[in-house]
Write a protein that binds this DNA or RNA. Structure first.
Lengths: 131, 131
DNA sequence: TTTCATGCTTACTTTTCTGTACGTACTTAC
DNA sequence: GTAAGTACGTACAGAAAAGTAAGCATGAAA
């Protein structure tokens, strides 16, 4: 069983040339969406608007710096909407854009699969360790 | 799939407590699956078995070191099957396990979404740059 | 005989990522 | 007056990821 139905590597590459070729913008977006905190922020925002400090409490382990950074990436990519109220103390709300919701659904699908598949993966780990 | 319709945010949050809590094993797996080269390797293997050097040519930009590393991660997680024939020169074949195929489908769904959504994302970038 | 291809491994360097600590502006509470 | 909360920005440092270069075993082709 080698390659599927006689497609040249070139033909296959052109199907999804974007991702397989270096220095294509999709990789940037992928990096943001799948970054350590990006995944968790997207999922956290799936159930509505949150303030900065609420997100920080929700996503355990993020530093303020990384949360701010991650939110900026996602905002620049059009995934997250930021609404800032000019009051003191500051009040800023974050939510998913329609685009962001679509992305979050895919990310969550992957995350959910991992969690439900952890027992199977754990079994593989155990088997490897036993050798 | 895991979550049924009409669940409260709290109930949903508890489902995925694992991902939100630090130092949980799911994050390891997520890291491997969404690593820079992990994504591309999984997608490349979606259309059948490949040899090491074939993957290297296919996934443009990987170094041998990183490809080997990535394949080892995926193998340890039970996503990729490695078959080595004891001949000279070496001949090693990589393919997806059933588990790996499930994962690859989710990863590809995300990747495909990004590629088809790039025009929209690019428009956001352009709008931001114009300000 | 020299070269090449294969599938790695190891050592070393560079780049990127992430965290810590601190500052800011302003108001309310003590 | 001083501390706390808010949503950041910034400088620096350490950790982690990735790249580079080289080596290895071996048989076959040039």
């Amino acid at each position: 069983m080698s390659n599927a139905p006689d497609r040249s590597p070139l033909a296959l590459a052109m199907d999804r040339g974007a991702l397989f070729s270096e220095a294509c913008p999709s990789r940037e977006v992928l990096k943001h969406l799948t970054s350590r905190w990006g995944v968790l922020v997207l999922i956290a925002l799936m159930d509505g608007t949150h303030r900065f400090s609420a997100l920080r409490r929700r996503v355990s382990g993020v530093s303020e710096r990384m949360l701010a950074q991650t939110l900026q990436w996602l905002e620049e990519d059009g995934m997250v909407a930021r609404v800032s109220y000019p009051v003191v103390p500051p009040h800023v709300e974050y939510s998913l854009t329609p685009l962001g919701r679509e992305a979050a659904e895919r990310v969550q699908a992957l995350a959910d699969w991992i969690e439900t598949s952890m027992p199977r993966i754990g079994a593989v780990w155990a088997a490897n360790a036993a050798e």
